[in-house]
Amino acid sequence: HFTSQQLQELEATFQRNRYPDMSTREEIAVWTNLTEARVRVWFKNRRAKWR
């Protein structure tokens, strides 16, 4: 589960860029205190939901 702060950060990034690269995902991981893998999976799932 994600905190509302984490989701806000993830959503804001998603609005700007639906396909963040590795370095962007790592930055998000640092800001949100999540692993890069969790961030990558979140984006994958979010893109699926967005379609």
Rank of each mutant, 00 (worst) to 15 (best):
residue 1 H to M: 10
residue 1 H to Y: 12
residue 2 F to P: 05
residue 2 F to C: 08
residue 2 F to M: 10
residue 2 F to R: 03
residue 2 F to E: 03
residue 2 F to K: 03
residue 2 F to L: 13
residue 3 T to W: 05
residue 3 T to Y: 03
residue 3 T to R: 04
residue 4 S to Q: 13
residue 4 S to E: 13
residue 4 S to L: 13
residue 4 S to W: 14
residue 5 Q to S: 10
residue 5 Q to N: 08
residue 5 Q to A: 11
residue 5 Q to W: 15
residue 5 Q to T: 10
residue 6 Q to T: 06
residue 6 Q to G: 02
residue 7 L to T: 07
residue 8 Q to L: 12
residue 9 E to H: 14
residue 9 E to F: 15
residue 9 E to C: 15
residue 9 E to K: 15
residue 10 L to R: 00
residue 10 L to A: 01
residue 10 L to F: 02
residue 10 L to W: 04
residue 10 L to T: 00
residue 11 E to V: 04
residue 11 E to P: 00
residue 12 A to M: 10
residue 13 T to Q: 15
residue 13 T to N: 14
residue 13 T to W: 15
residue 13 T to A: 15
residue 13 T to L: 15
residue 13 T to M: 15
residue 13 T to K: 09
residue 13 T to S: 15
residue 14 F to T: 03
residue 14 F to Q: 02
residue 15 Q to V: 07
residue 15 Q to K: 10
residue 15 Q to C: 09
residue 15 Q to Y: 07
residue 16 R to N: 09
residue 16 R to Y: 09
residue 16 R to I: 12
residue 17 N to I: 09
residue 17 N to S: 06
residue 17 N to L: 07
residue 18 R to K: 14
residue 18 R to Q: 13
residue 18 R to Y: 06
residue 18 R to W: 07
residue 19 Y to R: 05
residue 19 Y to A: 04
residue 19 Y to N: 07
residue 20 P to H: 04
residue 20 P to N: 02
residue 21 D to E: 04
residue 21 D to L: 04
residue 21 D to V: 05
residue 22 M to Q: 12
residue 22 M to L: 14
residue 22 M to G: 06
residue 22 M to T: 08
residue 22 M to I: 10
residue 23 S to W: 08
residue 23 S to Q: 14
residue 24 T to W: 05
residue 24 T to F: 08
residue 24 T to G: 05
residue 24 T to V: 08
residue 25 R to Y: 08
residue 25 R to G: 02
residue 25 R to P: 01
residue 25 R to A: 03
residue 25 R to N: 01
residue 26 E to I: 14
residue 26 E to W: 10
residue 26 E to L: 14
residue 26 E to N: 11
residue 27 E to M: 14
residue 28 I to K: 01
residue 28 I to H: 00
residue 28 I to D: 00
residue 28 I to G: 00
residue 28 I to R: 00
residue 28 I to N: 01
residue 29 A to K: 01
residue 29 A to P: 02
residue 29 A to S: 05
residue 29 A to D: 03
residue 30 V to Q: 14
residue 30 V to I: 13
residue 30 V to A: 14
residue 30 V to T: 12
residue 31 W to T: 14
residue 31 W to R: 15
residue 32 T to M: 13
residue 32 T to S: 06
residue 32 T to K: 01
residue 33 N to A: 07
residue 33 N to W: 05
residue 33 N to F: 06
residue 34 L to E: 02
residue 34 L to P: 00
residue 34 L to K: 04
residue 35 T to N: 06
residue 35 T to K: 03
residue 35 T to R: 02
residue 35 T to A: 05
residue 36 E to S: 05
residue 36 E to C: 05
residue 36 E to M: 05
residue 36 E to V: 05
residue 37 A to L: 14
residue 38 R to F: 13
residue 38 R to N: 09
residue 39 V to N: 00
residue 40 R to M: 07
residue 40 R to Q: 07
residue 40 R to L: 07
residue 40 R to D: 09
residue 40 R to G: 05
residue 40 R to F: 06
residue 41 V to A: 14
residue 41 V to S: 12
residue 42 W to P: 00
residue 42 W to T: 00
residue 43 F to E: 00
residue 44 K to G: 05
residue 44 K to N: 07
residue 44 K to V: 11
residue 44 K to C: 09
residue 45 N to R: 12
residue 45 N to G: 07
residue 45 N to P: 00
residue 46 R to K: 05
residue 46 R to V: 03
residue 46 R to M: 06
residue 46 R to P: 01
residue 46 R to W: 05
residue 47 R to I: 06
residue 47 R to P: 01
residue 48 A to C: 10
residue 48 A to D: 09
residue 49 K to I: 14
residue 49 K to D: 09
residue 49 K to C: 09
residue 49 K to P: 05
residue 50 W to D: 13
residue 50 W to E: 15
residue 50 W to T: 08
